[in-house]
């Protein structure tokens, strides 16, 4: 088992880095302006060609450039939503695990309720009543995705809170907030980082799903999910419109999953 440890997270890490590079250097990498008509085929999507490797859409925009720029908005939303998810989940998990007893019971039952609800349906409901905007989408994704993180962090800090070094610090008179932040948090950090990688794959998928349902970041910002939503009308005549943005989402989600599970698997062995 040991001999292949590392391959998964290395490949995943490299894929994540490539995504970051594409998002960062989009203006240099993209051959065309993503929101301008650049092909003479206005009104008719054109199939992939040498000039436009991923074809053009119904407005004559270059799909490759849109996919490249889409990395920016999709990754930004994915990572920012992950940060919100982690903040809520880690806070609830730490407090529940550290204090135990009634606090733990109340917080975990609340987590169970949230875990029971279908996340996407809840997110759809909230985004639709709050109206889709970058902020509302980030908040809603965070609100529906934190439960898994809270459970894992709670389990880790539950055992950590009873360790000798924490008890010693408590005997020296350290306050609960200090104990949590200085002693428990640093020791559950490794699992938090793993959960962050896995969480990003979840938020990326959720954001793409919301976009596909018409609840994503408003146009003309090219987001991968939104591109597929617009492409469904043309799936018979222009399949390339849905294929390439979907591959991009798939690649991004797989990258974070490989990274997260790779690290997780090595930890548990």
């Amino acid at each position: 088992m040991k001999r292949r440890a590392g391959t998964m997270e290395l490949v995943g890490g490299a894929m994540v880095l490539s995504l970051l590079a594409v998002a960062l250097f989009a203006p240099w990498l993209a051959p065309h302006n993503p929101i301008r008509a650049v092909a003479p085929t206005f009104g008719n999507p054109a199939p992939p060609s040498w000039a436009f490797p991923m074809g053009t859409d119904e407005l004559g925009r270059d799909v490759l450039s849109r996919v490249i720029y889409g990395a920016r908005i999709s990754l930004t939303v994915g990572v920012a939503a992950m940060a919100i998810t982690m903040t809520i989940g880690v806070a609830i998990g730490l407090v529940a695990g550290f204090f135990g007893g009634k606090v733990d019971f109340a917080l975990m039952r609340f987590t169970d309720v949230m875990l029971t609800l279908p996340g996407l349906l809840l997110a759809m409901a909230f985004v639709s009543v709050l109206r889709p905007s970058l902020l509302s989408i980030l908040l809603v994704i965070g609100i529906v995705s934190w439960t898994g993180v809270a459970r894992v962090v709670r389990a880790e800090s539950l055992s950590m809170a009873q360790r000798d070094f924490v008890l010693a610090a408590r005997a020296l008179g350290a306050s609960s907030p200090r104990l949590i932040i200085r002693h428990v948090l640093p020791n559950v950090m490794p699992i938090i980082i793993v959960m962050a990688a896995l969480g990003t794959s979840g938020t990326l998928l959720l954001d793409a799903s919301l976009s596909f349902l018409g609840l994503g970041v408003p146009p003309p910002t090219p987001s991968w999910g939104r591109m597929i939503e617009q492409a469904t009308m043309y799936f018979r005549v222009a399949p390339w419109l849905a294929t390439f943005p979907g591959l991009a989402i798939f690649y991004a989600v797989l990258a974070f999953n490989l990274l997260g599970y790779g690290v997780l698997r090595r930890r548990s062995m």
Binding site: S209, F212, G225, P239, A242, L254
Partner: peptide
Amino acid sequence: NVLLVGSLAMVSMPIFWLGTMLLIAVA
């Protein structure tokens, strides 16, 4: 290993995209 990566790929696939791809292929 193949099955492990395969299962991760299955988990990572956006459902709506998979559905659309199946539609395109079958059509």
